[in-house]
Simulated assay, not measured.
Amino acid sequence: NQTTTITSVCDPESLPRVPGPKLGPFTSTALADIKFLSELGDGDNKDSHVWKVQINIDNEWEMYALKMVSTPLAACLVNPLNHLVYYHPNLYRDKVQAKYMHTLPRCNFREGYLSPFGCECRAYGRLKEHGREDLAHKAHGYLLIPYQQQLELLRAYSAAAGYEFAPSHLDQLWGRPEKDRLLPVKAIVKELVPAESATCGIGPRASQARKAWEDLEALHRLGIFVLDIQYWNYLDGKLIDFSRALTSYHPCLDSCP
């Protein structure tokens, strides 16, 4: 596996750029040397791609799950606000835009409140604030994946598929226009669940059901409304996905009809 050393002079900020809880960068630059090992899950997720990776931490290669988030807004709108925007446009304009968007750039509002990346960062940020990271599989921080590392990922996809993808395939992978090709992709570094514990696809087992319910109640008390608790969002009885979660304060929580 080849790696590319990425450096930056920027000091990354915690994200998203909206009021409320945030997730900090995984490294001091939000960049890292990464080896892409294998894709996790069924590869059919419309808003993200998750890979088993090794990340160089102080010259030690450590294993993680890396969730890289696609970019199109159409795939990023969380369900309640999607309904609000398209079926109650007057309410959206009067109750949401008027109250929030005049104080935030439109791109920050959308990414912070409506995108899977923003939803996950806010939920994990709230868990960190309250010392309750035990309620889900842990997220360590976010990374930016520059274009040259995206090409490394493409080579890993090509090796797995047995034929070579053209660089333009990245645009399809992330759902982005060609003009955005050189922009970095945002990713969240999560703990890697051991294969023997990764009972993905069957949800919490009977012995884990009560604890899973108690965890949901605890999340609600923290102001995190998960919304998407389908079985594939659990590994070993714990949530692994907050991409549809609403974390207070959130426009949906006081604006949905």
Rank of each mutant, 00 (worst) to 15 (best):
R106V: 07
G201P: 10
C200L: 15
Q2D: 14
A195L: 02
N108A: 06
K190M: 00
I6H: 12
K95H: 00
H250Q: 15
P251Q: 08
A195N: 14
S48L: 09
R126I: 01
V185K: 05
S8L: 01
G131I: 04
G24C: 09
R210N: 13
L23M: 10
D47S: 12
W61T: 10
G162R: 13
H169A: 10
Y100D: 07
E120Q: 14
N108S: 10
A32R: 00
L77M: 08
E111G: 04
N45I: 13
K22D: 03
S255I: 13
Q148W: 13
L81A: 03
S8A: 08
T103V: 01
S248K: 13
P25V: 10
T27G: 08
H102I: 02
G41E: 04
P167D: 02
Q54L: 07
F36N: 01
A32K: 02
T71K: 14
K138I: 00
R132E: 09
G141F: 11
C121V: 05
D180I: 02
L31V: 01
R17C: 00
F225Q: 03
T29E: 01
L235E: 05
I240D: 00
Y234R: 09
T3S: 06
A161F: 07
R244D: 10
A123N: 07
S168K: 09
S158P: 00
A98T: 14
P80A: 01
P177M: 00
E62H: 15
R93W: 11
P194G: 06
V50D: 06
R122P: 00
L235S: 06
P257T: 10
A187C: 01
D134K: 08
C256M: 11
L216P: 11
A245Y: 05
M101A: 06
S48R: 11
L23T: 08
M101V: 04
E120T: 11
F109A: 00
A209I: 06
V96Y: 02
C121D: 00
V226F: 11
L182S: 12
P204F: 07
C76M: 07
P194E: 04
E196D: 07
G41Q: 06
H102N: 08
I229R: 13
K128S: 14
G175I: 04
K186M: 08
P251L: 09
K99M: 14
D94Q: 13
